[in-house]
Amino acid sequence: MSYTGWIILTASLVGLTCGLIGVFLILRKMAMMADAISHTVLLGIVIAYLITNELNGPHMLVGALLAGLLTAVLIQWLQTFNIQQDAAIGIVFTTLFAIGVVLIATSVGNAHLDVQHALMGEITFIPFNTITLPLVGNVPQATAMLIIVFFIVLFFILVFYKEWKITSFDPALAASLGIPVLLMHYLFMSLVSLTTVASFDAVGAIMVVAMLITPAASAYLWTDKLSIMLVLSGSFGVISAILGYYLAAWIDTSISGSMAFATGIVFLVSFIFSPTHGLIGKYIKPVKG
C-alpha cells in the first residue's frame, strides 16, 4: 500500500472505531468524558515511560489504559459526594492532565514525548514505524493496533448490544432487570480508554475528541434508531478522515487538524439538511401541516 493509503486507512480506522463508541457517549450524555480521557491518558503514558525508559511497547498501552480507567473511577467517586458530573469531569481532567504536562516538563528530558505531539499526533510518521505480520508483511504498528481495537470494540458492541441499549436509555430499568449497570459502565469506560489510547499516538487528542463526538452527534440528527445511528456514525468518521486528508494536502496544513475540521463540516451538513432534526426539515414541516 502507498504512503497516502496507510495514512488514510489509519485515520479511517480511528474514525470508524471512535464513531461506534461515540454513539453511546452521546446517548449517555457523557460527551465530555471523551475529552477528559483523551487528555488524561497522557499521564499514564508519561508514567509508563518513567518506569521503563522506553517509548514503544505494550507498557505504554497499559499505562494509558489504567490512566483512562482511573479517570472514570475518580469521576464516579466525586459524583458520590453530590458533585455534578460536568464539574467532576472538569476537576479530574484538568488535574491529571496538568500532572502529565508537569512530568513531561520536569522529568522526561530529551525523549520524543511532548505536549504538542500529544495534542496533534504524528500521523505523517505512521507508515515508517512498521511491524511484520504473517501472510501480510510489513504493516504500520499503529494501523495494526487500531485494527485489533476495532474488532474488540465491535465484538463487545454486538455481544452486549441489548445491555448497552438499555443501560444507555434507562439505567433504572436495566438495574431492575438484573443487568449489572455499574459493571457495564466500567466495561464501557474500558472500551473508551482502549479506543482513545490506540488513536492517541497516531492522531493526537484533538482529533480523538472530534472523532468520538462529532460523527455521533451528526448521526443523531439523521435517525432515532440505534443500529442505523451506529452505522452512520462510523461512516461519518471514515468520510471525515478521507475528506480531511485531501483538505490538508490541498492547503498544506495539519492532517489531524484538517480531519477534525472535516468532522465539523459533516456535522454542519447534517445540522442543515437532516430531514427530521435539521434546519430545513424543521422549516418545511410547519408548511406541510
Rank of each mutant, 00 (worst) to 15 (best):
I152G: 00
I179H: 00
T214P: 03
Y161A: 13
K162R: 12
P180S: 02
V149M: 05
G204I: 06
W164D: 07
P180I: 05
L182K: 15
M211A: 15
I179Y: 00
T195Q: 09
F188I: 04
L191D: 01
I152Y: 00
F155G: 02
A202G: 06
V159K: 15
F156G: 00
T195G: 15
Y186I: 03
D201Q: 15
I157G: 02
T167N: 10
A172H: 15
D170F: 13
G204Y: 01
M207I: 11
I206C: 03
S168W: 04
L173W: 07
V159Y: 13
V197N: 08
F160G: 06
L173G: 09
V149A: 02
M189C: 09
T167H: 06
K165H: 13
F188H: 06
L212D: 02
L173D: 07
V159Q: 12
M145D: 07
F156H: 07
V208E: 03
P171N: 11
V203T: 11
T196R: 04
G178W: 00
M145C: 08
V203H: 07
P171K: 08
A198P: 09
I213Y: 09
T196V: 15
S199Y: 10
I157Q: 06
W164E: 05
D170G: 10
L177E: 08
F169P: 05
L212F: 13
L146K: 03
F200E: 03
M207L: 15
V149E: 02
I213N: 06
L187E: 03
K165D: 06
T195A: 14
M184D: 05
I157K: 09
L212S: 10
P180Y: 01
I148F: 15
L187C: 10
M211V: 11
A210N: 01
L182D: 14
L194V: 08
P171S: 11
L182C: 11
V203R: 00
S190Y: 05
V197K: 01
I152K: 01
I148V: 15
L187W: 06
K165Q: 09
L173P: 10
L191N: 00
F155K: 06
V159T: 12
D170Q: 14
L212I: 12
G178Q: 03
L154P: 00
F155Y: 08
V159I: 14
H185S: 15
A210S: 11
L194M: 13
K162F: 02
T196N: 14
F150H: 09
I179G: 00
P180W: 01
V192Y: 04
S168V: 08
S199K: 10
I147Q: 02
G178M: 01
A202W: 04
V181Q: 10
V153T: 03
V208F: 11
F200A: 11
D170T: 12
M184L: 14
I152D: 03
L158D: 08
D201C: 07
V149N: 02
S193H: 06
V203E: 04
A175H: 04
L173E: 08
L183E: 13
A175F: 04
A205S: 14
F155Q: 07
P180M: 03
D170P: 07
A172D: 15
P180V: 03
F150D: 02
F150G: 06
M211L: 15
G204H: 01
A210Q: 02
F200N: 08
M211G: 12
L187Y: 05
L212M: 15
P171D: 10
S199R: 09
D201F: 07
L194G: 00
I206L: 13
M211E: 12
D201V: 14
